[in-house]
Computed example of a mutant assay.
Amino acid sequence: MSKLRRPVPSGAGEFVGYFGYGSLVNRATIATGVVAAYPARLKGWHRTWRARPDMEADMGPTPGVTLPEALTPSLLTAHRAPGAAIDGLLVIDRADNLPVIDAREFRYHRRDISISDLEFTQTADANGIDPDIRLHVYEARIEHPPTQGPSPILRSYLDAVMQGFLREFGPDGLHRFVTETDAFHMPIHEDRHAPLYPRAVTLLASESELFDLALGRRVNGVRN
């Protein structure tokens, strides 16, 4: 998908923005008709891996996803943290599509943010966004207990996330994603060749090599 940096059409009520900091950074995983997308940095939030909330009793299993028994993969979340900041992608979408994104992120609460919470990689980007448009970020639910059992990171999910960061922010942004994300000590479930993540992506050989190198830095404790 080509990078869209054109101004958002007038009529803020017809559009909505959501800040992706995980798989939503990868435009290839977004099924709705995106109007525009802007690489940005969200101030006052911090990203971490965590065991997913146990919601199966309330909502049932994730539609279209079949996981091996006892495997409950970790998910990425972000939480408010004064002085912190995270890279991501501000996606501008039609407001009618928001229920689709809410369904995708049903393990998260949709929180309000404002344009002043964002720093854009290109100053002109902020000028193209209607100041009255509703902006959101998704934060994992904490009112449910975490699932029990192993909580590895799915390699197929991580590949989609890392590809998004590489394409939006380059190699430096990819390494920044690793170093700025807490709880990256969790084991990785190797499913690259038989993906369990429903929006798995295809990697170039160079991307696979670079992602493995970035994870090697994580394992070896290299933070810069």
Rank of each mutant, 00 (worst) to 15 (best):
M1V: 11
P7G: 14
V8M: 10
E14W: 02
F15D: 07
L24S: 12
V25A: 08
A28Y: 15
T32S: 02
T32W: 07
T32V: 05
T32A: 04
T32P: 07
V34M: 04
V35H: 00
V35F: 00
K43F: 13
K43S: 13
W45C: 10
W45I: 12
H46R: 06
R47M: 09
T48Q: 07
W49Q: 01
R50Q: 14
R50A: 14
R52N: 03
D54C: 09
D54Y: 11
D58G: 13
G64V: 06
V65S: 01
L67H: 08
P73Q: 11
L75D: 09
A84R: 12
A85N: 08
A85V: 13
I92A: 00
A95V: 06
A95M: 00
D102A: 14
D102L: 15
D102C: 12
R104E: 13
F106I: 13
Y108E: 13
R111A: 15
D117Q: 14
L118D: 06
E119Q: 09
D125Y: 11
D125V: 12
D125K: 01
N127C: 15
P131C: 03
Y138C: 13
E139G: 08
R141W: 11
R141H: 12
I142Y: 13
T147Q: 12
G149C: 05
P152Y: 01
R155T: 07
L158T: 03
V161D: 02
Q163Y: 01
Q163R: 10
F165E: 05
F165N: 03
R167V: 06
E168K: 07
D172P: 02
R176A: 09
V178Y: 01
V178G: 00
T179A: 09
T179P: 08
E180P: 10
T181M: 08
T181K: 04
D182L: 11
D182N: 03
M186F: 00
H189M: 12
H189V: 11
A194Q: 02
L196G: 04
P198S: 09
V201I: 08
T202G: 09
E209N: 08
L210Q: 07
L210M: 08
F211R: 02
A214I: 05
L215K: 01
R218G: 02
N220A: 14
N220E: 15
G221E: 00
G221M: 02
R223I: 01
R223M: 07
N224K: 04
